[in-house]
Each structure stands twice: as structure tokens, then as C-alpha cells.
Computed example of a mutant assay.
Amino acid sequence: MMLKSLACVACGAALLSAHALAAANDADSGTLARLTGAFNGWRHSGLTNEGEQYVAAYPRPPVDRGAQRFRTLIQGQLKRVDLHVRRPPALVVNGNPTPLYTDEQGWFARPWAFGAGSNSIELISADGAKRQRMQFYEADRTKPQAKLRAVVTWDDPHAQVDLHVITPGGLHAFFANPTLEDGSGFDVDSVDGAGPGIFSSAAPEHGIWLFFLNYWGNFDSTGYNFDSGAHDRDVITATLTLVFDENTPNERRETRVVPLRKIGDLVLVKSEQL
């Protein structure tokens, strides 16, 4: 479905300066995409290519698989599109890269979960030669800040990869159980390929956390399927990034890259002691 509006949305009272927007929309040949936004807070855009509405809130998202709330949308149109390149352009949000797949006109819409403080969005061309970046500040400090985030992305737009999180107390968060009794859960669980899936906890329990990735199936315009050949890559490369104390001076991150070869693959990617 082609997106009719051109917008970049962020949660709460995120502010985008006129200078940043002007830089993002510069007509120079080096500009990769056009983005727009309201100067007094980024605009709510309505529907995405997943047919879902977005409302900004945190940290307890009452998520279900088809109508996920409490997410933020990054939306726009690339100025130049080549659907045949092996490596697509990249969307990098707060240092987390995601392959940026578009329709034939270059339209894209990717969900994210932004925390308080300084946030960044960067577009990188397929060859890595051109970059477009904008920075904004989320000023709403009343929202609990995530002490732990787990972000998963992958490099096949037709594959569906699921993140499973097991807490030290034995709670299990995944697409069918997206929110937990301790208040943690999925801010984002993208269903249309490449991700992201984002699990967040504002007060992670001490002990051993387990993070699994599962190649669940494939996804296209007709919905889900389990056709072993209905994907773009023979080996899907999934990336799991753990972010601790995001947007603070103590922020640290760990990244693991995992190959997934067939539907049903389930891999323990990381066992983390907190």
C-alpha cells in the first residue's frame, strides 16, 4: 500500500528544529529522502503500511499482533530507488541499523520506540557513500526511561523473525504474550519484514535474562505463509542489540549477529546477567 502522506513522527513532546527539518529536506543531490514534521512536536500520521494506528506512550504497551499501540512512526520517501541492489539503504535510529526496504516509488514507514533525551535518525545509501541525519530531543521526562532494550532486525523483507525474552523470574515475552506482569514488554513488534522488534524494561529484574530469535515464517502482501522458498535470502542475517541505560552517560550496548537458515530455527542468542 503506497503511503499518501510524508511524515516523520516521534513520541510525546519531541521537538524538531526548523534548521534540522530544512537540512532534511534540502534539495541538494546528496539528500537521500524527504521528511516533514510539525515544528511544535512531530505529527501523528495515522496509518502505516502495516495498517496500524500509532499513539505515543510508554512503558506499558497493551500490544497485540495486528493493532500495536504506543509506537512511533518514521515515514518518508527515498529520492532514488533501486529495488535490485543486494544491500538496501539503511535506516539507523539511535545507532541501531535496520535495512530500509521501500515500495517501487521509494515510500517507507518504519516503527520505533523513542526514549527521553537526545535521539537521532540517519539514512545511509546502499553503497554507504551518502548520509542524511537529523537529531531531535524528547523533552518529556515524566515517562520512565528504559534501563534495558532488546532490538532485533534482519535482512529479508519477506521473512518474519520473532524475539523471545525470558526474565530471571521465568516470565516469557513474545508476540503472543507481548506485555509482562513486571511492566516490561514490546514497544514495537513489526510484522512486515526487516523489523524492528523492540522489547523494553524500565526496571529490569536482577538475574539472568535469556534472548532467543525464532525464524517464524514468511510475510507478503497476502499475509503469513510457511513456504520454505518464499523469502529473498537463503541465509537470513538477524541482528540482536541490547541497549542498557539508553540516552544516559552510562549507556552501553552489545550486538550479536545470527544466521537463520530455515523456518523454525530457534537460537539462544544471548544470556545476560543483570
Rank of each mutant, 00 (worst) to 15 (best):
L100T: 01
P111W: 01
P62R: 12
D82R: 09
Y101G: 00
S125K: 06
Q77D: 07
V93F: 11
G76D: 04
Q68S: 10
F114I: 02
V92M: 04
S120I: 08
G106K: 06
Q77V: 12
P97G: 06
R133A: 15
G76N: 06
W107R: 11
G128Y: 08
D103N: 14
A116G: 00
R86N: 04
Q132H: 12
N94R: 03
S120A: 07
S118V: 15
W112S: 13
L78M: 13
G66M: 07
A67Y: 14
R131A: 00
V85S: 05
P88E: 12
V93K: 03
R80E: 10
S120G: 07
L91H: 04
V85F: 04
I124D: 02
N94Q: 00
R69W: 05
A113F: 08
F114S: 03
Q132F: 09
V93Q: 02
L100C: 00
P88K: 09
A126W: 08
K130E: 14
S118F: 11
T72N: 13
M134S: 02
L83Q: 14
K130G: 00
R133E: 13
L83P: 06
G66K: 14
L73V: 13
K130D: 14
R131Y: 08
S120Y: 04
P89G: 05
I74N: 09
L83R: 14
R65N: 05
Q75A: 14
V93N: 06
M134A: 05
P89M: 10
Q75N: 14
G115Q: 06
I121Y: 00
V92T: 09
V85E: 11
L91N: 07
P99R: 03
P88M: 10
R65S: 08
L123A: 11
G117M: 01
S118I: 09
V85N: 02
N119V: 05
P99I: 00
R71A: 15
N119P: 01
F70P: 01
T102H: 06
R65T: 08
G117R: 02
L73W: 08
P97D: 06
S120L: 01
D64M: 08
E104V: 10
E122N: 00
R110W: 06
G117T: 00
A129L: 09
D64P: 10
G95T: 10
P62C: 04
R131L: 06
A109E: 03
G106I: 02
G95N: 12
R69K: 13
P89V: 06
R87M: 12
F70V: 07
I121R: 03
P97N: 09
A129Q: 14
D64E: 12
A116N: 01
N96I: 07
T102F: 01
L91G: 09
G106L: 04
R69D: 06
